[in-house]
Amino acid sequence: MFRIEAEVDRARRDLLRSRLRDTNTAASPVLAALRGTPDEREVPLHVWALDESGDLAGGLVGHTWTTWLHVTYLWVDTPHRGAGLGSRLLAHAEHTARTARACTTARLETWDFQAPDFYRKQGYDVVCVIPDYPPGLTEYTLTKRIA
């Protein structure tokens, strides 16, 4: 018997993620050859920019996994936009990923109203376009060689 539930159950989510990773690792020689557990291989990488008063001016949240940097969020507060802060945050994350974590490639996702042109100017290439995700928007996946 099966039961469908629509509630958030973090323990089950974590169990499902763990079992999926174990299955994937067992099935893939590439993943099986990686050192450490999947959770040990995915290492957070955060970069913060504070203004003169110590308030958050911008930041980048991501992680490194194997030889990849994955940028999850990059945000710059409105008064600080256009001054190169986003470029500096991204460059710092790429430098850290390359020099301290042996990453060779970076990836990220963005929507058409956000920053695909900004990322192209930083050397990123569009590798995937998903129109109407969500409806009325287009999502882009971009990558960049950083080594």
Score class of each variant (00 low, 15 high):
M1L: 09
E5L: 12
V8A: 13
D9W: 05
L15R: 14
L15I: 11
R17W: 07
L20V: 15
N24M: 14
L31E: 06
L34I: 04
T37M: 08
E40H: 09
E40T: 07
E40C: 11
R41L: 11
E42P: 05
P44I: 00
P44Q: 02
L45Q: 00
V47Q: 04
E52K: 13
E52A: 15
S53I: 10
D55A: 15
D55F: 12
G59K: 08
L60Q: 01
T64R: 01
T66Y: 12
T67Y: 02
T67W: 04
L69W: 01
H70K: 10
Y73T: 15
Y73K: 13
L74W: 04
V76G: 07
H80S: 04
G82S: 06
L89H: 07
L90C: 00
L90Y: 03
A91C: 10
H92Q: 14
H95G: 13
H95V: 12
T96F: 01
A97K: 04
A100T: 10
C103Q: 03
T104C: 07
R107G: 15
E109F: 02
F113P: 11
Y119D: 12
G123D: 01
G123V: 00
D125Y: 00
V129N: 08
I130K: 13
I130E: 14
Y133S: 13
E139P: 06
Y140N: 04
T141Q: 09
L142N: 06
T143P: 02
T143C: 02
K144H: 02
